[in-house]
Design a protein around this nucleic acid. Structure first.
Lengths: 209, 209
DNA sequence: TAGATTGTTAATCGATTAACAATC
DNA sequence: TAGATTGTTAATCGATTAACAATC
């Protein structure tokens, strides 16, 4: 069904498709077409059909796509129906915001713990979780087996912590540290959120004009 | 000097080059080569030379690149030496974290105000700024002329607010709202930070294995 | 001079777009 | 049936990689 390797470009577009179809479904739209989607998303109809056909045949000639069905398919493709345990490492400002504002369940995850090295923070409650000390990490992972770690720690500690977590069975990192993690990409998935890099691209594009 | 149009792929790599060269400079490294950079960054030497030559000739045959000089060039290329006024719109959790944690000056910006529609939040201090009410936006912009707005507001309010800000002379948006802004890309630059999309790509990549 | 590494041109690869037969 | 729109193959375009003369 699914092509062997999906290009990074396609992967980056999948969430947009899902997001837009969710909106369409929400407004009660029943059917759509690659032409209509393309127009709304600023892509070409060809591209959308090519992208979707990496995963299967979801449309019908002469009709187009059923919005609800296609959204559901994308949900399964992206894996949003799963419930992987996730932990947040680093309970500073950023960790707190993520704990409180990200609807993990909507993305196929279940927040199951928050850790920090600062003894001051431990025991405090964030988003319904009592912050645990990093000393408890091994015992916790042995019990809960989190698959994903959200890294909200300083750059200096990131690599070491990632290695420690990998050894404990974590195979996915949502990395907010300002560094590129060194990891075996065949076994571990890393999604970087480099806010500084993001702001730099804005700076660059505004400098050209 | 600079090629007419720089591809999105190149733009995304520039911050990584800058970041890595800053590290090298910090550790006292004097010279490097495209080969060495490529090895460290997981790219090819060809690609790095092609990328840099979009902007000029910064190396020397037989020697390579001077780390400090190349870093400085990238700083200028990305525009980090500038000081564009920026405002944060939305003083909720996310707005607060960004105000407190992002070193705007390091990226060519200067934070100059924080706004919210919630009267409760107005007057409170965040990162040294007194939160202003959105009613004061027009008067403020007339005086300070911010070029950039960081949107930390709900999806529903994003488009309307962006339009309002565009009319007030804002030409760059760092958009944390979970929606794709509709803007005239020839006059306005938009950099989206879609955390949901980011987490979905992680979900997708973890689902394959 | 010999070795190293650039800047740049040419070749390759992959992604996007166009075209169209299949079919609802 | 006629019109619409898919899935898919072929053509195009752009980005990455390889090769190499120039030169430090």
């Amino acid at each position: 069904m699914q092509k062997d390797s999906i290009s990074e470009s396609v992967i980056r577009r999948l969430p947009r498709y899902y997001r837009f179809l969710s909106e369409l479904e929400h407004t009660g739209t029943e059917r759509t077409s690659s032409r209509e989607l393309a127009k709304q998303l600023g892509l070409t109809a060809s591209q959308i059909r090519q992208d979707l056909n990496c995963f299967g045949e979801f449309g019908q000639q002469g009709y187009g796509y059923n919005v609800a069905a296609l959204r559901r398919q994308l949900e399964l493709i992206i894996g949003l129906n799963r419930t992987r345990a996730a932990i947040i490492v680093g309970a500073g400002n950023l960790g707190k915001v993520i704990a409180a504002n990200i609807d993990f369940a909507a993305y196929g995850f279940r927040l199951s713990g928050i850790f920090d090295i600062d003894h001051e923070l431990c025991g405090k409650e964030i988003a319904g979780f009592m912050v645990k000390h990093m000393d408890e990490l091994e015992a916790f992972c042995k019990e809960v087996h989190p698959l994903v770690a959200v890294l909200c720690i300083p750059q200096e500690a990131a690599q070491e912590t990632a290695d420690r977590l990998t050894a404990l069975g974590v195979s996915g990192f949502w990395n907010f540290s300002h560094c590129d993690l060194d990891a075996d990409r065949s076994r571990v998935q890393v999604e970087n959120v480099h806010l500084g890099d993001s702001l730099m691209t804005l700076s660059f594009r505004m400098s050209k004009d």
